[in-house]
Write a protein that binds this DNA or RNA. Sequence first.
DNA 1: ATCCTCGGTGGCCACAACGT
DNA 2: ACGTTGTGGCCACCGAGGAT
Length: 241
Amino acid sequence: MIYRLPPLNALRVFEAAARHLSFKEAANELSITQAAVSHQIKSLEDYLGVQLFKRAGRGVQLTEAARAALPRLRDGFDALAAAVETIHVRADETDLEITAPPVFTARWLMPRLADFSRREPKIDVRVVSSSKMVDAGALDSTALMVNHDLRSDASGVEIHLGAGDYPGYRADRLFGVATVVVASPQLVKGTPPLGEPADLARHTLLHDDAMDLVAHGHAWPKWLEVAGVADKVDGTRGPRF
DNA sequence: ATCCTCGGTGGCCACAACGT
DNA sequence: ACGTTGTGGCCACCGAGGAT
């Protein structure tokens, strides 16, 4: 939309002069000279082709045209002021950057973001996918942990696979992770069928570093211990990823 | 009636921003 | 570099109103 408007400064001067009913007072308010006010009003009247003030001796009076236009002009300036204030507030708003593993982002975070944005519309959320892991210090639980970086000015939350305390961070447990064995012995030609947990002794064990971290160390030995075959199967052998 | 003060007007100029 | 345009200051002037 194209707005056909006179110079906004002339409108601003007109509003001040109309409010004070004095060019001099308007000039004082706007920190310009009275002559400048007179020029602005004159240029506005020339632009509009309408007289805005009745010059009657000392002082000025609004014409009917000016009196009719003034309320809507003030509404317009109020709207402009509100819009500028909105820009300032918007600039002061805090962005929130969430760093999280891709799987966590897709399955847990994204379904909840829409609701969060509805409740906190002023917070601009940015999601950064990251697969980096956090080395656990004192491991005390199997969990996904939220780390609030308390050591920087960044408004950010990092979500990592990990457990325990991290110096300089605050960590909150979101939920635990269940470890499930996935085996496909038929894919390896010549290997016997997999029937009992102890049969894993004749198969290659694949290690996922992420799962090992979640499991407080190596996931396979823990699973084999729960299955009661830790003494029959070496859970540390096999390639790592 | 005269003088003074106040406030608006108009001409002129300087300056900055912008387009050519 | 030059011209145009917008903005605003300076200054002289004018008219109205109040004081004497």
